[in-house]
Nucleic acid binder design. Structure first.
Lengths: 206, 206, 206, 206
DNA sequence: CATGAATGAGGGTTCATTCAT
DNA sequence: TATGAATGAACCCTCATTCAT
C-alpha cells in the first residue's frame, strides 16, 4: 500500500518493484528478451523465480511496463518541446537533445525497443508500440515540414526518411553507448547534431 | 571458405542447403534468432525438424554460416573499394553505396547481425563478429582521417563516431526497408548520403 | 465433534469461518477441489490467500471439515430414521426423503463427495469417507434385507446393489439440481421414489 | 504414416498412440484429470514427459480425444438402436443394455465424463459435451414419450427426469464397477433394468 | 535424405504454504 | 486478523538435438 494507486492486479510504486523492473530492463536489453529467463532475473534479485510473479503477472507484463513507461515519458517530453513554439531549427535541435537525453535516462528501455522490434511484433499486446512510433513520426515530420516551408531544411529531403534517419542513428547508439566511458551523451549528441545539420563535408565543397 | 569443399561434417554447395539457409535467414531476421525454432524452419521447408540436421550441425551453425557469408563478402567489397585508390570523398561515397547495396543483397544477414548483437555476444563461436566489426571500423576510420587531413571532412568530428553513425543508420534501415516498397535502395542511399555529406540545413544558414 | 471447542489449532464456531467454509464448499463442488485454488477462495472472500491460514490449517483441512460435517449430520439423521422402528417400506421411504433433503441442505458437500471420490482416495486423511460409506451401506442393506424377508421387496435384488443404485441416483442429481429451478427437491424425490418402488412400466404389463 | 489419415497436427491410428491414450484414460478416471500429471502418464508409459507431446498437443487434447471417441461411438450405437424401430419398451431395454455395454467398453471415458463434468465445463473446447448430452437426452426423451403415449410407461413421470435417472445410475456405477469382480456388467444391467422397469417393491402392494 | 519417436534440459507459470510486520 | 513478500516444489509445455529405420 505504498503507492496507493492500483493498476492491473499487482501494485505499483513499491520500491522493490521498481528495483526488479530496472534489473530486468538491463538484462532484457543486454541479452535479449527471449534469451533472458525469469529465473535469471530472480537470481539477480536474490529471490526465487516464483516470487517474481508476486510483483508482475508475466514476463511479457514486465517488458510491457518497461516499454510503456519509456514511451509515455518520451512522448510527453517531445510534446512539451514542440508546444514551446520555437522555430523549426531550434525545435529540431531540442528534439535531438531530448532523444539523446533518453539514451541516458531510458537506456535499457530504448535498447529493448530497438533490439526486439521483430520479436515484440509477434504479440498483440505490444501493438501500442506501432502506435507510439507513428506518434513520434508525426511530431518529427510536422516540424521538419515546417522547416522546409520556411526554407531552413533542404526541400529535397523526405521528412519521413529524415525522421527515420535521426531516430535510427540515436536508437542504435544505445548499443555501444557506455555511460561510464570517455564519450559523454552530450558529446555524442553534439557530434551527431552537427552531422544532422551540416553534414561531414566542410562547407564550400561539393 | 570458398564453398564446394567440406567444412564441419555437412556438405556445402547443394541447392537445397542454400534454400534452407535463405529461409532460415529470413525467419531469424524477422522474428529473432531465439524466437525462431528449428521446427518452424523445417515446417517452412516442408520437412521435419530432425531432417535439418542432415544439412546443418546445429541452429548456431546456421546462424554462423549466414553471418560469415555476409561478413566475408562485405569485407571483400569494402577492401576492393579502398584498394581502388580514389580520393577520400569519392571513397566514402562508394563505401556508402556498397553498404546500401548490402541492404539489398544481404538483407537478412544484416538484420540478424544488427538485431541480435547482444544475443550472439553470449556465444564464444561468434567472437569473429567483433573482429569483423573492428575490421570494418579500421577501413572507415582510415579513409575518414585521410579526408580530414586533406580538408574534405570536418576536423572536429570523431572518425570513429562518424563511422558508427553511418554504420548504424544504414544497418537500422534494414528493419523498415521494403524491397517491394516505393522507396528503392538507391533512393534511400541518395537521401542518406546527402545528409551524411551536407546535413539537412540549407547552406549559408546557422 | 460438536463444535465450539478447539480442534487443530484454529478456532471453530466463528461466523467468518463458516462463511469462508461455505464459499469454499461451493467452489470445490462447482469447479473441483484440485481446480480451486486457495487464492480463488480468498479472492471470493475479499482477503488475501495467506489470510486463509489464520482460519484453516490447509486446503485439505477445509475439504475435511466440509465433508465431516455432512457425513456426521447425515449418518445421525439416517440412524434416527431406522431407530424410529417403522416397517421396511416406510423406513426406505424416509431414508430416501432424508437423502433428498441432504441434496438441499448439504448440496456442496454432497457434490464434493460424489465428484472427488477418486481424488480424495489418494489421501490417507480421508480414509474416514470409506468408513462412512460402509456405515451408510450397512444401514440401507439391513432395512432392505428386512423388507425382502417380510416380502415387501423383490427377493431377487441384491440389497447392496440396490443401495448403490439409490445412493448413486440421488448423489448424481446434485450435479444438475438447481434450487431455484422449476423442479423442487420434493418433486424430484417423489418421481425418483416412484421409480425406485414401482418402476417406470405401468403395472400389469411385462 | 501408419494410419494414413491426419487430423490436427499429430497422427492418429498408431498403436503407440492408442496405448498412451488408454493409459491416460485410466489414470484420468482413477485419480482425476487435474490430479494426473503428464509426468505420471509418461512414467507409466516408460517415456519422458516431453515425449508425450510428440503424440498429443496437450493434456487437454488427450482428454478431448478420449471423450470424443466415446461420445461419438455411443451416440452412433444409440441411434442404431432407435433406428431399428422396435416398440418403446424393447427400445428402452436395448438402450439400457447399450449403456451398460459402454460401462465395459468405454469405462474410463465414462468415468472421466462423469467425474470431471464441473472441471471440464471451465474449458471452451469441451463445449461439445453439453451438445452431446442434449443429443442423448433427445433420444431418450423421444422413446420415453412414445412409451407414455402407447401406455407402456407411467404417464406421471417426467421423461427428462427419468432419463437423468437412468443416465446417472449407470454413469455413477462406473466408479465402483470392477470388471474382474464378482458382479458382471450383465448382472448389474439385469438388476438395474428390473428396478427401472418394475421397481423394488413386489407387485400387488402399495 | 528423410522420418518419427524419443531425449533431457530448461522455460514460464502456478500454487499451497509460511512468516515477519 | 490481515497483509505482502517470499518459498519451493511441481506443472505443462517447448525445443534443440539424436538416432534407428
Amino acid at each position: 500500500m505504498t503507492g496507493g494507486n492500483r493498476t492491473s492486479g499487482k501494485e505499483r510504486g513499491s520500491g522493490r518493484r521498481a528495483e526488479l523492473l530496472s534489473m530486468a530492463a538491463r538484462m532484457f536489453a543486454t541479452r535479449g528478451v527471449a534469451a533472458t529467463t525469469m529465473r535469471e532475473i530472480a537470481d539477480e534479485a536474490g529471490i526465487l523465480s516464483g516470487s517474481l510473479y508476486h510483483h508482475f503477472d508475466s514476463k511479457e507484463a514486465m517488458v510491457d511496463e518497461i516499454l510503456r513507461e519509456y514511451l509515455n515519458a518520451q512522448l510527453e517530453r517531445f510534446r512539451r518541446v514542440v508546444d514551446a513554439g520555437h522555430d523549426p531549427h531550434t525545435t529540431v535541435g531540442e528534439l535531438i537533445r531530448e532523444a539523446f537525453a533518453a539514451l541516458h535516462r531510458h537506456r535499457w528501455a530504448m535498447a529493448v525497443l530497438h533490439n526486439e522490434a521483430g520479436y515484440l511484433a509477434g504479440f498483440d499486446r505490444f501493438g501500442y508500440i506501432d502506435t507510439a512510433n507513428r506518434d513520434f513520426e508525426r511530431i518529427w515530420v510536422r516540424v521538419l515540414r515546417q522547416g522546409q516551408r520556411t526554407g531552413v531544411f533542404r526541400a529535397e529531403l523526405s521528412p519521413r526518411l529524415a525522421h527515420r534517419f535521426i531516430r535510427d542513428s540515436v536508437s542504435a547508439a544505445v548499443r555501444w553507448y557506455n555511460p561510464s566511458g570517455r564519450m559523454s551523451v552530450q558529446g555524442i549528441a553534439e557530434q551527431y547534431t552537427r552531422i544532422f545539420r551540416d553534414g561531414m563535408v566542410v562547407s564550400g565543397r561539393d
